[in-house]
Amino acid sequence: MKKSLEITDVAAIDMAGSCIASVRTACVVWGIASITTLIAVILALGDNAVEPITLNMFATGFIVAVGCIKAALILRYYLGLGPAAGSWRAMFIAFLIVIFLGVLAAQGVVILMTPQAAS
């Protein structure tokens, strides 16, 4: 175990520079993610609907896509899931795509089931 830890340590040192973002990149990522979040909250607050509404596919896709992109940014720049990760990276991206498509598909079914047209 001891030995393997050391190996990992060396690998981490080698990859550290390229994997985890520099301070500047991290700040840019933070800025992008925060601004999209702020916009989402402002839009949500501006909506004074008393009755529940059903979002159309485009709006839903946009909301979930923004979430997934934020997650992807965190993965890439905060977690350091760089190109070195190889097929693992594909696995994480696939995970995000599955979430995106799954939520979107559910929304599609909800729209079809709701009698009044989606706004």
Binding site: T8, A11, C19, I20, W88
Partner: peptide
């Protein structure tokens, strides 16, 4: 190795 996982930051 860990099948590529050791190339990522952290254990």
């Amino acid at each position: 190795s860990w099948g590529g996982l050791e190339l990522l930051p952290g254990h």
